[in-house]
Design a protein around this nucleic acid. Structure first.
Lengths: 158, 158
DNA sequence: GACGGGATGTTGACATGACAACAACCGTAG
DNA sequence: CTACGGTTGTTGTCATGTCAACATCCCGTC
């Protein structure tokens, strides 16, 4: 009677509730955060992440590949995105003395000013729609869960 | 000394860990689930959700607006997506007797067959990268958290 | 039985991100 | 000092999603 294909282990009610909750939360939460950010600072979440990561880098700049690795973006995605942000005057590509292929990303004054202006509102938005809705225990549990999932995925794709 | 602008309530270490964990998990988890689904069934997550929702609808079909409301998609997004899925022969738009503007979405035989073939593998993928990594208590906590966030967002945008 | 406000879908323009193919360059074995 | 495998970034192409503007149609009113 065994045709060689295991019978699917469908999700239990609780498992399904968790998964659907994740998907739904993601849809609504990302949309809201993105709207807030776009309205208040004219940035996308991706823009914000790039500005944020570069500004926190030692020396205020980072090699493209290093930044991509740090953000877990593909080099392609980052390159495209940097091109667009460069056109808006938020970042610049610099050359690397030690490697002619290299490209160093750094913020323009405008980029720096933009992230400084945007940060408080963005944090407030994250609080309003997420952080402040949860108890410290829930936040801790959530952090634990998400990093567990992340670590697992990074084992396969280091 | 008060210039009218509150000092930003930056995230605490734990809060930051939770938020960054969420963002990172999302990036990696969605990418992995999407890849599995694309490889195994030639579907995007969006495709899967549409097929899934329509197939579960009473009568196996749903009005476009109702489906959009159900999925929390904009009518525009759904309309565009249905157009693409229709071109691939997965769904069809039917007319509504009671309303000349109306459009009823239903699956083609191919669409039905596709979701049936895809479901087991997709569930397995969700288990492998998410559900099976967590304890029942964690799953319960996660579900609670996500629906709390969802409910809050739905208050503003019903 | 025509009007006006609201609902239903569609469309166009544009920003994103994924994947794969490339061009250029580095460094090391020989 | 040359060939070659690996690295750094870039680019083209295509599928998605967003927003805003529309074209149609329905319905309660007057």
């Amino acid at each position: 009677m065994d045709d060689g294909v295991d019978r699917p282990r469908w999700l239990s009610k609780e498992e399904d509730r968790a998964w659907r909750g994740y998907r739904r939360m993601q849809l609504l939460l990302n949309r809201q955060i993105a709207r807030d950010l776009a309205r208040d600072a004219g940035l996308s979440e991706a823009d914000y992440d790039v500005l944020s990561n570069v500004s926190e880098a030692p020396g205020g700049s980072m090699r493209l590949t290093e930044l991509a690795r740090h953000m877990r973006w593909s080099k392609s995605r980052l390159s495209h995105h940097i091109t667009r942000m460069e056109q808006r005057g938020l970042v610049v590509r610099g050359e690397v003395a030690s490697d002619a292929r290299g490209s160093v990303i750094s913020l323009t004054d405008r980029g720096l000013e933009t992230i400084r202006q945007a940060a408080p509102g963005h944090v407030e938005s994250v609080r309003r729609h997420f952080v402040d809705l949860l108890t410290p225990a829930q936040l801790a549990a959530f952090a634990e869960i998400s990093w567990t999932v992340v670590d697992h995925l990074l084992e396969a794709e280091p």
